[in-house]
Simulated scan of single mutants.
Amino acid sequence: MENIKKILGIVWIALALLTAYFCIAKFGLPKIMSGHQEDVVFGIIILFILTPIISIGLAVFGYFALKGEYREDKM
């Protein structure tokens, strides 16, 4: 079970990188470049608020899983 948790830690870190890419390249920047006011506001919210929260949260969760912080004997 501990090995599965470590493998999933790598998966969570990979998901953090993919999430950052998609939030920036596919959702954030195209909305900002569109020129419509409602799209610019939505793009700014995605880039500066949602992307860091989601990506950093997934990366930290993956890091802790990789380091073994969720082991049964630690509790």
Rank of each mutant, 00 (worst) to 15 (best):
G68T: 03
F27N: 07
I44R: 10
K31Q: 11
T19A: 12
G68E: 02
I53H: 04
P52E: 05
I46V: 14
G57F: 11
A20V: 03
L47D: 03
A16I: 01
S34E: 13
E2A: 03
Q37Y: 12
S55I: 05
Q37N: 13
D73S: 12
I45F: 13
F42W: 11
Q37L: 15
I56K: 02
T19N: 08
K6M: 10
M1F: 08
T19M: 09
E72G: 03
A20L: 06
L50K: 04
P30Q: 01
V11E: 04
P52G: 07
L15M: 06
V11N: 06
L15C: 03
A59C: 12
A20W: 05
N3C: 07
I4E: 08
F64Q: 04
L50I: 13
K26A: 00
F64W: 10
S34Y: 07
G57T: 10
L18F: 11
L66T: 09
G28S: 06
Y21P: 04
G68F: 02
L66F: 15
L50W: 08
G28F: 00
S34D: 15
H36P: 04
I49A: 09
L47N: 11
M75G: 10
I45C: 07
L58H: 02
K26E: 00
V60R: 09
L15N: 00
M75T: 07
S34P: 05
D39E: 14
A16W: 00
L50C: 03
I7S: 10
I53W: 06
D73R: 13
L18R: 05
E38W: 11
G35Q: 09
M33S: 15
N3E: 15
A20Y: 05
G62H: 00
E2R: 08
I44A: 12
K31N: 14
L58S: 05
I53M: 10
T19I: 07
A16V: 02
I24S: 09
G57S: 15
E2G: 13
Y63L: 15
V11K: 13
L66M: 13
F42Q: 11
W12M: 15
A65Q: 15
N3V: 12
F48W: 10
A59I: 10
H36E: 14
V60C: 09
Q37G: 08
I56A: 04
I46Q: 11
